[in-house]
């Protein structure tokens, strides 16, 4: 058997793939954060709660209305995006003129309140959500048994990431958005509704978190705490990628997923800090992040 650093190559390939799967979640979540920060300059601490809400919408829609998984992939981001748009319009938008810290504190408080409420109502244990029948089972790749659902997560999240990147970097709408961030007054004078653009952006970011939540529901327990467990890691991903860089967030998400996966083989005890170690090193060498532009 071929060995790499004392680990059979089969096991290593398996871990690389597992890292890629986890990286998909990091990429989707950090993409949403990066979009919101890049265009609104809001550090959205409610992102974990929005991710959790996405999973809960899928779960409750199935329980109460029989909405299947595939529909939930559309319904959950719409519901969570809609709620988030409401919150942005009524509350968050009032904080844009103030220091960034206020947006951070507001979204953090919001996340605590939402998670606390869900924990009170649903308990901490979490509830199961079955994957759709079409994605049940797995395939034997020779070096590992790949659950079909996990393969789907990688493919689907990659498509979403690229679509969002193209939307912002390559379309007319994206160009307006970016312009509105640079100089809102000027863009508004061209007759473009800037506040509406910003609301839509926030809803888009929240919707992305909700999609990640629906994707996560069949893998993890749907629990009020699922978001707070992952959000800190995702922030580190965004910092490593460079605050506000869309492509940076995507690439870094996958990269750090793989780095974490490999750590779990070589030194499992460090697997939950390796991302922060990388973050510290990047901040020392490149304070703007790997893909960030120097401010």
């Amino acid at each position: 058997m071929t060995m790499v650093f004392g680990i059979p190559i089969q096991a290593l390939l398996g871990q690389l793939l597992v890292g890629l799967i986890n990286g998909s979640f990091y990429a989707l979540l950090s993409l949403g954060l990066a979009v919101i920060f890049g265009l609104l300059r809001v550090i959205n601490f409610a992102h974990g709660a929005q991710y959790m809400l996405g999973a809960f919408v899928a779960l409750l829609a199935l329980k109460w209305a029989g909405v299947p998984y595939w529909a939930a992939l559309v319904v959950a981001p719409l519901v969570v995006g809609g709620l988030s748009a409401l919150i942005e319009r009524t509350m968050l938008s009032r904080l844009y003129q103030l220091d960034h810290l206020y947006g951070l504190l507001f979204t953090f408080g919001l996340a605590l309140a939402v998670e606390g409420g869900f924990r009170w109502y649903f308990g901490a244990s979490g509830q199961p959500y079955s994957p759709p029948a079409a994605l049940n089972g797995g395939v034997n790749l020779g070096f590992m048994f790949l659950p079909i659902y996990r393969g789907w997560v990688v493919v689907f999240s990659l498509i979403i990431c690229l679509a969002v990147w193209a939307l912002i970097e390559k379309t007319q709408l994206g160009a307006k958005l970016r312009a509105a961030t640079e100089n809102p007054t000027l863009v508004q004078s061209f007759g473009i509704n800037v506040p509406l653009l910003l609301t839509m952006t926030y809803a888009l970011g929240a919707g992305l978190a909700a999609i990640a939540g629906v994707l996560a529901a069949p893998i993890y327990q749907v629990s009020p705490l699922m978001g707070s467990n992952i959000i800190i890691v995702v922030f580190a991903v965004v910092v490593v990628g460079g605050m506000g860089s869309i492509m940076g967030a995507i690439v870094t998400g996958y990269m750090l997923g793989v780095a974490e996966g490999l750590t779990k083989v070589f030194y499992p005890e460090a697997s939950n800090i390796v991302i922060f170690v990388i973050m510290a090193i990047v901040l020392i060498l490149r304070p703007a992040g790997l893909f960030g532009k120097e401010a």
Binding site: P8, A11, Q15, N22, N272
Partner: peptide, 20 residues
């Protein structure tokens, strides 16, 4: 045996090690 951090979300790496 493999030691995992408290409140780990994803066990797939550890499970693959257990499997092999």
């Amino acid at each position: 045996a493999v030691k995992h951090p408290l409140a780990t979300n994803d066990f797939s790496s550890f499970l693959l090690q257990a499997q092999s």
